[in-house]
Simulated scan of single mutants.
Amino acid sequence: MNIPDKVKIGNINYEIVKTQNELIFEDEPVDGTISFEESKIELNTSNKSKQYIEETFIHEMVHGIFNYMGINQSEKLVDKVTKGFHQLVIDNPGIFEKDPRDEKINKFSINLKKRLERVTDN
């Protein structure tokens, strides 16, 4: 799984910040935070496994999705959705990768449109 530098949740673009520093939320140490006001997700990657960092990233995105959709959220609910979604991604590698055929179709459509424009301009 790839953790990008930014992610769009609803109409908000969130910056993803990976840090080695301790993160604090409500006076407690945490491994990830999401700031709706700053449009930022922070992940503490210090001494964490790849799988754990991925789950933390998904966890924060689930918070973002719930917030965007106005869903009441508890840590217990977010944790359950996170574990299910992370397992889905692990069990189905490439599920969210772009299909190269889509790019070919898009290029074909653009070229066809340009050709039609030239024909109708004459």
Rank of each mutant, 00 (worst) to 15 (best):
D91H: 07
N21H: 15
R101H: 09
G32H: 13
D99C: 08
H59Q: 04
F25Y: 12
T45R: 06
F25E: 15
Q73R: 07
K76E: 05
E60F: 04
G84E: 14
Y68G: 00
L23S: 06
E60R: 01
D79E: 12
E42W: 11
G64V: 07
G64E: 00
E55C: 02
E37Y: 13
G64S: 02
K50S: 12
I58A: 00
T56D: 00
Q87K: 15
F96P: 04
Q51M: 13
M69H: 12
G70F: 09
K76N: 11
K50E: 13
Q73K: 06
T19I: 07
N72K: 13
F66W: 01
R101W: 07
D91T: 10
K80F: 11
S35K: 13
N21P: 00
L77N: 06
S74G: 12
F36H: 09
I95T: 11
E28F: 09
V30H: 05
E54Q: 05
K18F: 05
Y68I: 03
K48D: 01
I90G: 01
V89D: 01
H86C: 08
D91Q: 12
P100Q: 06
S46I: 01
E54T: 05
V89L: 15
K83S: 09
G32R: 10
E42H: 08
K83Q: 10
D91E: 15
H59G: 00
Y68Q: 08
E75H: 12
K50N: 11
I53V: 14
E60V: 04
P93C: 04
Q87V: 04
E42C: 14
S39C: 11
I34S: 10
G84L: 07
S49F: 03
N47T: 11
F57D: 00
N72M: 13
K48M: 12
K40A: 09
I24G: 05
H59A: 02
K98T: 08
F36N: 07
K50L: 05
H59I: 02
K18L: 05
Q51E: 14
Q87A: 10
I58S: 00
D99Q: 07
L77C: 03
V62Y: 02
I24W: 13
G84R: 14
T45L: 03
G32Y: 13
I58F: 03
N44Y: 03
D31C: 10
T33C: 09
K76F: 11
I34W: 11
R101F: 08
Q73D: 15
F96Y: 14
S49K: 10
Q73G: 06
G64F: 03
K40N: 06
P93V: 07
I34V: 09
F66I: 03
V30Q: 02
G70E: 01
E75N: 09
E60L: 05
G32N: 09
F25M: 12
N21F: 11
N21D: 11
I90C: 08
E60G: 02
S74M: 04
F57E: 00
H59P: 00
M61R: 08
N47V: 07
T19M: 02
F85A: 07
M61N: 01
F85R: 08
D99R: 14
S46R: 15
T56S: 06
H63M: 03
I58W: 01
N47Q: 10
Q87P: 02
H59T: 02
